[in-house]
Design a binder for these strands. Structure first.
Length: 135
DNA sequence: GCCAACGTTGGC
DNA sequence: GCCAACGTTGGC
């Protein structure tokens, strides 16, 4: 199983809205690196849900419900996946904490700020969960 | 609201 | 195929 992180601006699509919807078509990705990552997602993979611009924290974990298929919002060659909420973190993990954490300070979120869909190593994913359990 | 970082576009 | 100009994202 692989682990991922996706970003969303809460003003555009928030975790709370996602919980209400119970499912999301992850559309609008228009970046080649991000597209490659979307296409590598497998059903059941776990995905950190990060609030960008406002919040600046990982708020929950989503699960890949359906693997990559043609983005219905365009005729061009872009992909979407379907995600469903898996669990809300007990406590959000902030960007500040991530930057301060030895294991996490090199993840794409920090190194390459603009990438909107990125892979995480298993240990990075687990570290994020661990941080969310701390108070 | 500003600006750095990065990706994309287009002229040569 | 290089690179300058431009647009967009996202942290601050």
């Amino acid at each position: 199983m692989n682990h991922w992180l996706v970003k969303s601006e809460p003003s555009t699509y928030s975790w709370e809205k996602f919980l209400k919807d119970k499912k999301a078509v992850w559309d609008g990705v228009r970046n080649y690196a991000a597209r490659l990552n979307l296409r590598a997602m497998k059903k059941g993979d776990l995905v950190c849900f990060y609030h960008s611009n406002e919040g600046l924290c990982i708020v929950g974990i989503a699960k890949v419900l359906k693997e990559a298929y043609q983005d219905p919002t365009t005729k061009e060659d872009w992909s979407v996946v379907d995600l469903e909420p898996y669990k809300t973190l007990k406590r959000p993990v902030t960007l500040t904490e991530i930057k301060a954490d030895k294991l996490l300070q090199n993840i794409y979120l920090v190194r390459q700020g603009r990438l909107s869909v990125m892979p995480l190593k298993k240990e990075e994913f687990e570290r994020i969960l661990e941080l969310s359990e701390k108070k």
